[in-house]
Design a protein around this nucleic acid. Sequence first.
RNA 1: CGGGGCAUGGCGCAGCCUGGUAGCGCGCUUCAAUGGGGUUGAAGAGGUCGUGGGUUCGAAUCCCGCUGCCCCGACCA
Length: 516
Amino acid sequence: MIFISFDALFDGCYTPLHLRPSGHRCLSGWRWSTQAMADKDKLIPRSEDFNEWYNSVVLKADMADYGPVRGTMIVKPYGWALWENMQKALDGRFKATGVQNAGFPMFIPMSFLEKEAKHVEGFAPELAVVTHGGGQELAEPLVVRPTSETIIGHAYANWVQSYRDLPVLINLWNSVVRWELRTKLFLRTLEFYWQEGHTAHATAAEAAERTRMMLDVYTDFAVNEAAIPVIPGEKSAAERFAGADQTLTIEAMMGDGKALQSGTSHNLGQNFAKAFDIQYLDPNNQLQHCWTTSFGLSTRFVGAIIMTHGDDNGLVLPPRLAPYQVVMVPIYKKDEEKTAVLTATQRIAQELTAAGVRVKVDDRDNVTPGYKFNDWELRGVPARIEIGPRDLEKNSVALARRDVPGREGKQFVSQDGLAQTVQALLTEIQANLLAKATAFRDAHTYDVTSYDELKEAVQTGFARAWWAGDGAAEQKVKEETKATIRCFPINQPDGSGTCFYTGKPADKVAIFGRAY
RNA sequence: CGGGGCAUGGCGCAGCCUGGUAGCGCGCUUCAAUGGGGUUGAAGAGGUCGUGGGUUCGAAUCCCGCUGCCCCGACCA
């Protein structure tokens, strides 16, 4: 038996827990129309209530469910399959840079957290602490990891003796716990799944290079796998990771114009190396502290995919990550039709599978084809093949694309060369999603030169502005507009300008936005 | 922690004011028909009414306590 308590250790420096998250869990996403049955199952349109749309689409699309403890999430197989595809895409990229996977304990001695002052200060309010184990009170409370920098630091201190031991390049696929007050499926839950990379280097330059390298990995992943046009940039001091010298981020714009921090890469400098004595002897026999980095991307990114591409009809998943790229719906009336149609369906499914396409055959007999069309559109499957008696006669199938909803996205194509046709369509859909998301983001990003313009801009999107303010000014803007500096983009314009807030000369532009 | 609200089959709700032993829709099971954009009909299964106490011949219903949950605020890598 394990008891977890959240008080005692940080009296006064954390926020009490008796509060309620948002996350409207009752299914008020359904509309009630006693007359037309069809209305009953319809989603609240995204355009009508983005928040409600998100909550209900996550549940209805079978991505996730609420856990029994407030703020916890059950990831269902369909959502997990998407996460698995994301994991594969990321894992390959990490390994290509020399990173290896490992597993680290979930329990961390409280004393570890306390070794890095800013780190513990940042995390104390949201720690889950284990005070009992095996029926007895523990001598030292254990923290359920909110992230693993400290326990990694402890290990690396043992692992690293010589410059020949460096760099250390480790990644963990695990879950972490942060006791959040306001939760929302995928975006912010008490426990979430992610990867956290941890590296140690001999020089500051190498650590800086690594920090940037992983940012580029995330950017590449977001753009080319998820079709999300992120803005890579640097966080302001106020938004920096607790214990980092520098935090790089990829910021995405959701369909409601709000920002979502979608992945972060931190240069930890020598902060953790000094706190945990991660030292090595250099070639001159001089003892040196290492330079460390960490980087993470979580299941929150699933939320990014949902909110970037989804539409009034539900999810729209990018083909490269979608659990099913194609769903096949057989259509028949009589038994002999059924046999012939199902035979052809299986044959085509095998051809597509052999060509590397992820195919789902929906042979449910208790719902109509029309129901299946809507069902799979809600679940965001990129393409759909309908095959019926008429197709058997004409050697054709109906091929529908999710990014063009309704009948407009449907065409009849030959069964000959269908695998190639489908692959070409998937490629086109992938490109179209990225193009649409990019166009949306650009249309909702405004260059502003005055505070009034900024206030207006962040109502519907991002404001891009020259900035020379300090932390206090940034805080003031946050209080007055609810918008924060999302990042200073890596790609900066040439020259310099005037800060819209302080009127001082500024040498960099910042992206402001309201954020999740 | 401040303000507001809710708790009744798997889900969403009605019933409560004016006490008399629980009902509707969806979903689920079975059968038949239907099937190219959310399909009908018939027959079924399923509830200690959050919890503890009180009032009463009798409590889902009235009273008190407790717990949990939702919304707004504060808080938040």
